[in-house]
Structures are given as structure tokens and as C-alpha cells.
Design a protein around this nucleic acid. Structure first.
Lengths: 335, 335
DNA sequence: CTGTTAGCGCCTTCAA
DNA sequence: TTGAAGGCGCTAACAG
């Protein structure tokens, strides 16, 4: 039934007794093939289980029916987006190819430029960039960014209201009675991270609390990079009574560090995160956090990309969705 | 800075004043290039922001450093696996390309054969197949299946103990006092679905309860396909007091259908699922379910694939992990 | 050490 | 209506 080696268009042509170009025409529904010939070719295709190679085809035709989703890695944030993206792409006629290009031997920064250069123009007709590390790239294909990078260029974009979300987070802590509130910042190059820091500062200022540099550390959005800064924040006499971490993963890591130091959460320390990834509610101490509508963000980004691809009018190039405070068990009043 | 059109190897060669093959040798760290030449070429590559096209390269070299993850769509089950797969692939030197091939215009069955045929031999060096719909495929590249299809061939496989998990689910319901227990089955072609049905039957038999055909419907593992069969199960006088759904998504849909019918869960109807995807604990009525170690399944599958690729000895070709009952709020005693 | 040549699988003119 | 020829971007012999 199945060939040890995949059938190529040449195998199909030979078996059907026609030329390669005729087979190609049949595959691509081109005019100029006799009905009988076409049907014979189709029979052979089915019989051989032939599928055209995506790599070879794209090299030549530059239209593949495949959209790329470029992420650094498949972690909770990007996989939640992926669900929304996949949902919106269903029945669009496009397949999805999600590529994780970060973390490898090529280091971190610029992974999506590399991914895009490797895939675009050949394998994919358009792309969604998730938290890109740079702001400029090849413009051959339509691109939509989710949670974009700071910078000059501005591709169509989907994000959530990070500024107001961050303010809400800190106001929640203030409302509980906290005055000494630490901030574990995100990736400095991302607009979202900057806005969350800005929201933190605004909320403190509005409450009449002076900004204290020593209460801010960079957590980098990843658990691995958050341990050391979290410890710096907590392992000292004048430690904060509450920490706002720029995302859930680093918030959870903060709680873990706190517990290693013998602190109880939320008794000795309140922690609030950002994102509301599944891990937030599933953690042993369910995490209070600012929820982003991740599925919807994915859906909207995909709709935007599809509009761009079909040449439809795009009313808004920048879509910002609302966030929402979700109170769980990791925050309480101090004392 | 960035070219409007991506630089190709020819652009690099011309700019550096060398031949295309010399550039190729530099890119691939081949012997026989003068250090000065190589360094000049590298400068040009950096300056032009050149990245080799994955499509073109793979067409020729048949070694890409990319592994495929083939899924029907990005839903909660496959994205949880993806987290584990991605984690295990980190630092392996391979990038991941996750392809969702199902659902499109080409219908459902056989999507992964199609995906594999399109990607293998060209774009990817190996693949993970998630709940494949067929049991035979092109053997050119190493393949590991997660939650495999029933059938003759047996690729290396990772799954969980579906039989015992299903028995545990039904025993939980029996232990609560239920005697009339419905079953919303999964996709009949998957081994996991068959085993879950078998576990359901075994547990009933062990409890001395006769199997009742009318209490079994096929839910197909997807919310969309579960509505009608769930309603058939519940919309009648002699409805069951509890339902075991073959996965969480169809369990949740069952609860939704029950509520539409005016039934309270778990007061009027207990529902237990399978998988423990994030959605299970996040649902309004947190779902009692049988947890599969999805992250670990992904990690083990990736390790298996990496072993296969590196030609390492593979001690076990079939890995089965344990399941675990997680009691939440969707089950209680009848009455 | 470097460049020339051939061809991976496919699609697209252009002739026949 | 069909097929032959060229080339997409790249790598792998083989010459020079």
C-alpha cells in the first residue's frame, strides 16, 4: 500500500502515462486537461497516496495555503493563543504551521526574524508573530504581531490593555492594605512589559507612594530567569509585603522562592500575576492575576491576518482588548 | 537595513565576491574555506540578514534540524502535549514545527498521512503524530505516535493506561452509589477510546451490573460532535444518573447539555471526564476527571524520537504512563 | 582553497 | 490538449 519512499510527481506521471506538467495541472486545477486524462491522473494519485511536497511546491509557486505562527517556544502563553488562532483558522482554507525558533543554539534575540526569513516567501503565505524580539523584518508577506515589540515599525497588532491591567493589579494590592509593593518586571524590549511597569508606577503615584528602585527587578517572563531576581526582592529584612509579577509564570516562581525562604503565601507575602494562563488557576496556591483574553486575542489576530491576505478592508490595525482582575488565593491583607 | 525582498544565497555570494558554493560551505561549516574568506562571507551574511530558506535547503539536503509535530488541530489536549514536547526538545538542537492538518477542506481522516507526506523527506527529520487516524504511513523518517490508532503497524508509542483509568472513573461513580451509568465514547478508531470503553464495561461487570447498550453513545472527543449524543443519553425518562465521558471536552459539553435540559450537576447528574486538560479545572463546575500526565507524555515521546534519531538504543518502544483520579465538583452521590 | 555543474520536486511559460 | 525546457534556492560532487 504505502511506498517505502514517498511517491513524487514523476512517479505519478509515469504510472499514469502522462507528463509531469500534466499532473501538475491536474493537481492545481489548471485549464487545458482533458476530463478523461484528469480523472486517470487523479486515480493514480489516490492509488499511490501522492501528496505534493510542501517544500518543493512552495519553492516554485510562492503560494502554499499555509500560515505560520512564530513563537519562541511552546509555553502556556503561546499555546493559549494557539488555541484561539487555530479556532479562527478553521474553515479558512489555510493550514497552520507553528514554528518554535527560540531557545536553540542560535540564542534568543531575533529568533522570529530568523524564523520568518526561513519560512516566508517559501513555506508560508502569512504569519502571526508572538512576542517578537525585534521590530523590523522582511515585508514580503502579511504579518500580524501579538504583544509586539517596541520600536519604529508598526505592523498590525493585537494586544490587551496592559497599562490599565497593571494599574488594576497594584490597586488590588493597595486596596488590601499593602504599601510596600515589589515589581518583577518582564522582558524590557516588549511594549507589554514596559506598560506593565508604567502601570505599576502610576498606581503607586496615585496612592501617594514614592517609587523605590530597590523594589523592582527584571524577571524576564520566564520561570528560569525569575529565580534570582525574585530572591533579591525577598531575601532581605525590608522585603516587600506584596509582589506584582509581570506574568503568571514568574509570579508562580516568586511564590516558590518565597516558600523556600520560609515565607507563607499569602500570609507573609501576597503575589499577583498577569495573563491568567491555565497554570495560574492550577497552581497549588491558586494565583490572583490579571486575565488577558488569550483565546480572543488569538482569534482576532487570525481574523486580521485573513483580512489582510484576502485584501479586505482592515478597519483597525491595532486591536487592544480589555483585561480583568481575577482574585484567587495568593493575595490577602498584610499582617 | 532589511531588504524588501529577502536576500538569497546568490545575493550573499555576489556581495562577498565569491561563488555560491563557497557561501554554502561557510553556512554549513564545511572544510575547505580560507579563514579570511569565511569571515568575509559571514560579515556579508550578517549585513544582509540572510537566512537560508528552509524549503530550498531541505529539498536538497534531507537534513533540516527540524522535527514535526502533527496534530489535527490545536485544542487543549494537543497543546498540553506540545508544552511537554517543546520542553524536551529544548537544547536538543532541533527546532519544532507543529502542523495542524485536520479540519480543512480535505476532511478529517488521514490528515496525518497527508501532513507527513507533505513534510517528511523534505522539511522535517522526524515526527510526533498526535492521535493519528491511520496506522500506516511513509517510513522514511522516524515517527513516534502519541495515543495511537488501532491497527496492524506499531510505531513507537506513548500513551497512558486508558483501561485502568476508565475502570477507576466508573468505580468512582459506583462508589458514590450510581448504578445507571452512561458512557459517551470517543473516536472509535483510536486505541485509547476502545480501551476506555472496555474499562467502562469491565467495571460494570465487576460490580454485577449488566451492560446496557442504550446507555452508550459516541461523542467523538470533540465538543461539536458530542451535543447530539449527549442529548440522546439525557433527554429521556430512564436517563442515567451519571455519565462517564471519554474526554474532558465532551464531559463539559455533556454538562452544558444537562443544564439546558434543566438538570443540575452534580445534583441530578454526575459527570466524569478523562484527560485533565486545563479546561477541566477551569470550568464553572470544576470537572472530576481521570488525569493523564500530558506534559510527561509529550516529554517521553520527544525523548523517544530523539533517541531514534541519534540511533541510540531504545529500551522500550511502547511507554504507558499512569493515570490518576482527580475528584472535583461534577460528581456526587445520586438523589 | 574555490568555482562549475547537476539536480532535489515542483510549477510555468512556450511549442508542438 | 499535451509535453519539453527552464528555474525557484540550495547542497554536493567534481574540477580546477
Amino acid at each position: 500500500m504505502d511506498q517505502p519512499r514517498n511517491a513524487t510527481i514523476v512517479d505519478v506521471a509515469r504510472t499514469a502515462g502522462v507528463s509531469v506538467s500534466t499532473v501538475s495541472k491536474v493537481i492545481n486545477d489548471r485549464y487545458g486537461v482533458a476530463a478523461r486524462t484528469a480523472s486517470r491522473v487523479r486515480d493514480v494519485i489516490a492509488q499511490l497516496g501522492y501528496e505534493s511536497s510542501l517544500g518543493a511546491r512552495s519553492l516554485r509557486s510562492h503560494r502554499t495555503g499555509v500560515l505560520g505562527v512564530l513563537v519562541a517556544e511552546f509555553e502556556p502563553f503561546s499555546t493559549e493563543l494557539l488555541k484561539g488562532l487555530s479556532h479562527a483558522a478553521r474553515d479558512s482554507g489555510y493550514e497552520l504551521l507553528a514554528h518554535s525558533g527560540g531557545g536553540g543554539p542560535h540564542g534568543h534575540a531575533g529568533w522570529e526574524r530568523r524564523s520568518l526569513a526561513r519560512l516566508s516567501g517559501t513555506l508560508i503565505d502569512g504569519a502571526i508573530l508572538v512576542t517578537p524580539t525585534v521590530s523590523e523584518w522582511d515585508q514580503r508577506i502579511p504579518v500580524v504581531a501579538i504583544d509586539p515589540h517596541t520600536g519604529a515599525s508598526d505592523p498590525p497588532t493585537v494586544d490587551s490593555d496592559n497599562l490599565s491591567g497593571a494599574r488594576t493589579a497594584v490597586e488590588h494590592l493597595l486596596g488590601l492594605g499593602h504599601r510596600r509593593i515589589g515589581f518583577l518586571a518582564g522582558r524590557p524590549d516588549l511594549l507589554s512589559a514596559q506598560l506593565r511597569e508604567q502601570g505599576y508606577r502610576q498606581a503607586l503615584t496615585a496612592a501617594g507612594i514614592a517609587f523605590d528602585d530597590s523594589l523592582v527587578r527584571v524577571g524576564g517572563f520566564r520561570a528560569e530567569t525569575a529565580s534570582v531576581p525574585a530572591r533579591e526582592l525577598l531575601d532581605r529584612p525590608d522585603r516587600p509585603t506584596a509582589v506584582f509579577a509581570a506574568n503568571d509564570l514568574t509570579a508562580i516562581r516568586t511564590i516558590e522562592v518565597a516558600r523556600e525562604l520560609g515565607l507563607e503565601v499569602p500570609g507573609d507575602l501576597s503575589v499577583i500575576g498577569f495573563d491568567d494562563v491555565p497554570e495560574a488557576s492550577q497552581y497549588e496556591i491558586p494565583l490572583t492575576t490579571i486575565a488577558q483574553p488569550l483565546h480572543e486575542m488569538g482569534e482576532r489576530a487570525m481574523q486580521l491576518l485573513l483580512d489582510l491576505l484576502e485584501g479586505r478592508d482592515v478597519p483597525r490595525r491595532h486591536i487592544t482588548l480589555d483585561t480583568r482582575l481575577v482574585v484567587r488565593a495568593s493575595t490577602s491583607s498584610p499582617d
